[in-house]
């Protein structure tokens, strides 16, 4: 099986890695770059725990080949806070009690950040729609939705 030498930027750091053809972006992040904040919940593009921002848009990193990511910009949950200052969605999800077991949380935060990047004032429906691909089994979602709404209102 062929290996590919790729260069990509993850959370602002330039990385040079050799990846086999069948390695997913999720495996690259977790196993090679040890960015374990991104979670593997189904490896089938269904649960959203592995959601990262790839070139400005959220993707299921289990559904992207690492080899495709040559030259890409990736942001993971580890890249949301800057110099110890949390992203507003990180702050509000804590305040609203939208975190329980925390396994879906990284993917939720990425989806929420991506939503607010493209829509500064989302309706409740738009928030729910943006989070449909992020399964959460603990919270019942309402506090997460509250957190995204609150983060949006804080930004405006």
């Amino acid at each position: 099986m062929a290996f590919h030498r790729i260069t990509l930027t993850v959370n602002g750091e330039i990385e040079l890695v050799d990846v086999p053809s069948n390695m997913t972006l999720l495996q690259l992040l977790r196993d090679k770059l040890v960015l374990t904040g991104t979670k593997n919940g189904c490896a089938a593009g269904e649960c959203g725990a592995c959601t990262v921002i790839l070139d400005g848009e959220p993707v299921n990193s289990c559904m992207v080949l690492a080899a495709e990511c040559d030259g890409a910009q990736v942001i993971t949950v580890e890249g949301l806070a800057h110099d110890g200052t949390l992203d507003p969605v990180q702050e509000t999800i804590i305040e609203q009690g939208g975190v329980q077991c925390g396994f879906c949380t990284p993917g939720i935060l990425i989806s929420a950040r991506a939503l607010l990047d493209r829509n500064v004032d989302p309706s409740d429906y738009e928030i729910r729609d943006a989070l449909v691909g992020n399964l959460c089994r603990c919270t019942g979602y309402l506090r997460i939705i509250d957190a995204v709404r609150e983060a949006a209102s804080r930004a405006s």
Partner: peptide, 9 residues
Amino acid sequence: VASYQLRTR
């Protein structure tokens, strides 16, 4: 179709 993040792909 599916979810926003799947529709990115």
